[in-house]
Amino acid sequence: MSSLSAEEKKLIEVDWSFKGVAGKFDRSSLQRGYQVYTEVCASCHSMNLLSYRNLGENGGPEFSIDQVKAIASAAEVMDGPDSQGEMFTRPGRPSDKFVSPYPNVEAATAANGGAYPPDMSVLVKARKGGSNYIYSVLMGYEDPPVGFQLDDGVYYNKYMHGNKIKMSNPLSEGIVDYADGTNASEEQMAKDVTTFLTWAAEPHLEQRHKMGVKVLIFLIILTTLVYFSMRRLWSRIDTEV
């Protein structure tokens, strides 16, 4: 445990649009991030707390209703049992949860060389450093220093705990073809997918920020009024309030 802190590299600090009191998500970055997730991450990482309908909700990627329906119906959802007692598959509906790449944790672990690819629904909140950590790990692949022992199927990552990661670098220039024409550089994709994962972990972030600003303004006005009311009342007493 003592060596833990020594191994931790300082994470890359990104100036996220969702940072700060009035922070908001970049809508098109969220949509691109979703594309990166489906085309790159989703083959191993589940997101079983999200539903397709979430993609159209306020404060998220805000795909149109038709886009959400199209995205959902492209998924094959296991349903049933039907009247014969059989399970069957059907096209997804917006109310369905994201379909997982593996039927269960054991299958996911077995298919990935003994390392379970974590569910990504709240991943950003489940890691120290949050969004910066996810971004840093995605950008942290490099050749191991001389003499650093790596087994087969294990990769070197600057920011991963112990510098060993069982996921090969998932991103490479142009691995996705962005629908909006943005150049799919590694940085861009890492940024977009991190933005998407941040929203996924905290889907009401924008609503929270907006409400928070209103609540604070309200409270400050009320507090000021109460303060002067208090001063007036206490002016009858010889003691300072």
Partner: peptide, 17 residues
């Protein structure tokens, strides 16, 4: 009440931000 409101402002800072 005045002190409580100051406290609630700090509280709200945590909850919302």
């Amino acid at each position: 009440l005045f002190a409580l409101l100051i406290f609630v402002i700090i509280f709200a800072g945590f909850v919302f931000f």
